[in-house]
Amino acid sequence: MLLRQLFRSVVASVLFFVLLGLAYPAIETGIGQAFFSHQANGSLGPNGSTLIGQTFTGPRWFQGRPEPSGNNPLASGGSNLGPRSKVLAADVRHEVAVLQKEGITPRNALVTSSGSGLDPDITPADAYAEAPAVARANHLPLAAVRHLVARHVTGRELGFLGSPYVNVLQLNEALAHLKGSTGA
């Protein structure tokens, strides 16, 4: 009796390994590579992945959120600092000071770190808050920079899913283009 259950357990383990552990992900990989190859390979562009945050140091660039690992994709995860942590308060105070020195009035999301440690986005409000400093540092008209931000705001999917955001890498690529075309 016990032996029969042992036999079945071993056969089931092998079967499930082949069906669920190899065939299922392999079929999905085939579908992904055939129909969604850009996404399935990591949404890669010439300057990296638009889904993986990178460190841009301001104010010549739009900057993303401060991440504890410095946006290292091999060390994803948040700060894990608690809501009454002295360390968190000190970190945030430091970020506020850095941004204020650059002439940016930081909002909440721009001085806190994300859950992934790789947040590729900032809020539209934060992008607009950075715009004057970016315009000044690059000798660009503020209106042109604000226009750039406006063009890069992604709204909620279907009008209610998620929160509006601006992708930092795409915004900076557009900024580089703008700098190039105005000779700044």
């Binding site: 990989t29 969604f36 390979n41 300057n47 990296g48």
Partner: peptide, 30 residues
């Protein structure tokens, strides 16, 4: 996958951003 979920056996990818000089090794997978 359609929304951006990664699904590949190709291993990690090394990227270099010429704008900010950032180099990253990005792990991927199924």
């Amino acid at each position: 996958m359609a929304q951006g979920g990664v699904q590949t056996f190709a291993g990690p990818v090394h990227v270099h951003d010429v704008l900010n000089g950032v180099r990253q090794t990005i792990p991927r997978g199924p």
